[in-house]
Simulated scan of single mutants.
Amino acid sequence: MIMSDKLVKILNGIKDGSLNVDDALGMIEGNTTVDLGHTKFDLSRPSRNGFPEVIYGAGKTPEQVGDIFLKLKDRTNLLATRVRPEMAAHVKSLCAGVEYNELGRTLTYISHPVDYREGEVMIVTAGTSDLGVAEEARVTCEMMGNHSKVISDVGVAGIHRLMERLEDIQKARVLIVIAGMEGALASVIGGLVSKPIIAVPTSVGYGASFSGLSALLGMLTSCASGVSVVNIDNGFGAACAANRINCL
């Protein structure tokens, strides 16, 4: 919920008598950080950044992530990324309704309806091996209120596959283009469409791809103007950028 919506709710509460002035003042001035001991969860991030805080699962224990979901599941929608299967199983045992996307390694819980905005984010992958990053991006886009779709395996090794889907790709408001190896797909699409492109290099590829570094450098030096690039395998970061563009 953005800050203006929260203030309207508080003011309406005073108007209809469900809130007194002192309680309303406390809600406005109150601490928006929930301290769980091991984690301080930021509830006011949507009002500042336009999207909620997200739990980064890597490096956390299943118990820590389970505690976060258990304590906050009724207060806000929750998204965790880079979630291992054993972590997902633990959290699901604590909270009914939690959904695990094994391919994208995301864990989600929806307690409040997601308010979808107009405009579609199209996620395009060079190969099937990039789908894990694509799913992370897709789930993040959906949780932030963006309609999204994945078109996979249309890389430059068989460029005709891309041309067959070009009409659909051009309808999107924002594009997330995901590729490993040399990362050429972002440049190719950048020369074919007029929409904003966020390129995601992936760690897919043989030894000389240097775990995604070749794709990263290829995307950064793209001759297609206006291509923005996020970090290697960072589907989440690309989705956050796409969300901000789609909000404009």
Rank of each mutant, 00 (worst) to 15 (best):
M163V: 15
C223P: 04
S187T: 15
S228L: 14
V188F: 08
I169L: 10
V204W: 02
A172F: 05
I178F: 09
G190Y: 08
L175K: 06
S222G: 01
A186G: 09
G237M: 01
I198N: 01
G235P: 09
A208R: 10
N243V: 11
I197Y: 06
V139L: 10
M181F: 02
E142M: 08
E164C: 00
I197G: 02
S222V: 04
D153Y: 10
S194D: 15
G212H: 03
R173M: 05
G155C: 06
G145F: 03
G155S: 06
L216E: 11
G226L: 12
G237W: 00
K195H: 14
G205W: 07
G237L: 03
I159Y: 08
R161I: 07
G190M: 06
S187Y: 05
G190T: 06
A242T: 00
I159F: 10
A242E: 00
G218D: 06
S222N: 05
L213I: 15
V193G: 12
D233K: 02
E182T: 13
A137H: 13
V177L: 13
N243T: 14
Y206F: 15
V229P: 09
L185Q: 05
G183Q: 02
G226H: 13
F210K: 06
C223T: 15
G158D: 13
V188P: 09
R173L: 06
S203D: 11
M219A: 09
L192T: 10
L166Q: 07
Y206A: 09
M144I: 14
G205F: 07
A199F: 01
P196V: 05
A239P: 08
R165T: 03
V230L: 09
G183F: 04
V150D: 00
K171D: 12
M181E: 00
T221P: 00
G212W: 03
E142Q: 10
S211I: 00
V200A: 11
A172N: 06
V174E: 11
I198P: 03
L162M: 15
A137Y: 12
V174T: 15
Q170R: 15
G158A: 15
V156P: 03
I232Y: 03
V230R: 04
V154I: 13
T202L: 13
T140S: 14
T140V: 11
I197K: 05
H147N: 14
C223M: 14
I232G: 03
M219H: 12
M144H: 09
N146C: 14
M163K: 09
L213G: 00
I176H: 04
V230H: 05
I178T: 10
T202R: 11
K149F: 14
L192N: 07
V229L: 12
G235K: 12
G180E: 05
Y206V: 07
K171Q: 15
A179T: 10
E142S: 07
N243W: 02
L220I: 13
A224F: 08
S225E: 08
